[in-house]
Amino acid sequence: MRRFFSHAVLHVKLSFRDKGSLFWGFIYPVLLLTLMAVSFSGLKISQERVPIAVEQGSALAGALRGIDILDIRDYQGDAALTALRDKKIDGIYRADGTLLVRGKGMNETILREIGSQLKKVGAAFAAGHSPDFSKGYIARGDQDAGILPVILSASLGMFALYGYFSGVSIVHTIQANLSPLAVRVSTAPVSRLSFVCAGMATGTIMNVLHTVVLLLYLKWVWHVNYLSDIWRTLLLVLVTGFFGAALGLFVGASNRWPIRAKVPLGVALMLVLSAFSGMMGSGFRLFLDKTFPWINRFNPVNIFSRTIYRLNALGTTKDFSEAVLFFLAAGIVLCFVSLLFMRNRRFRSL
């Protein structure tokens, strides 16, 4: 047991002293999530209100005043035209229903879309249709209308599996045919099982720590709360981290590729699985779900992202138990197979 702690302390020290590990474990995920959040939260984050003028007598005046994004200024006639020319406003909704803008740009596009939508609604009224605004026309299922939660949860799924790198590292430190350091360690009276267990435990815990930091970051900075069902979420993060480390152990032990090949392999694998799960946008994921539905059924990133989303955004525990059992069982199987691969202590070549 003392040796177990000695190995565990080693792994923890290596995790905290390796600047590469710290960067890829803590800083890179925060940077990537920030980039994703900024890119896909779009107007909600950066869009300021659009200044406009509305001519007296415009049929759209009432509706326009009810739109938050519009900032209606009190200009009329020539004063409004002067304000448009001086860039004090971005457009004028005229009494005859036309829209006057200065040129092409984001704000002008917004104004054109708003005008177009209001006209369609007006046309619907004119045709005798009368929408009941007290009724909810969109029924809420388990799909969120926004793309951001899909992308963030898929990214989280990717990072939750980063225990992979600990798993690979463990094998390359103890399996004598994989590295000179492992040759050196193998000449000492070391229990391989103790070393692997200590590495798996610390790798999993470190990964939980990384993921919790990300969840807190999302909650406090981006107000995306994936910690509302905190205990189930932590359990999910824990078993996913264990599965990631077991996957790394398996990839590390099952072949003699150098570590410089296994690490990029892991990065690529995570990215692909995340893309399947929607990190690159929901379109690809929807295509996969229709064409090859079995892929995401067994995609660990998708299992994690779907479950954490349902737990925290939809408040349902649907599939939670299945997900936990899947990660736990698959992780144990991978560990067992990896230890079988690692049973040799004497090799044909080093």
Binding site: R3, S6, L10, K13, L14, R17, D18, P180, L181, V183, R184, V185, A188, P189, V190
Partner: peptide, 22 residues
């Protein structure tokens, strides 16, 4: 060994302590 076989990220003392601890 011929190749340098210690943990590059650890201090001198931590490396020797770990290997002695084995």
């Amino acid at each position: 060994p011929q190749e340098l076989s210690f943990f590059a990220e650890l201090s001198v003392a931590d490396n020797i302590r770990y290997f002695a601890g084995l």
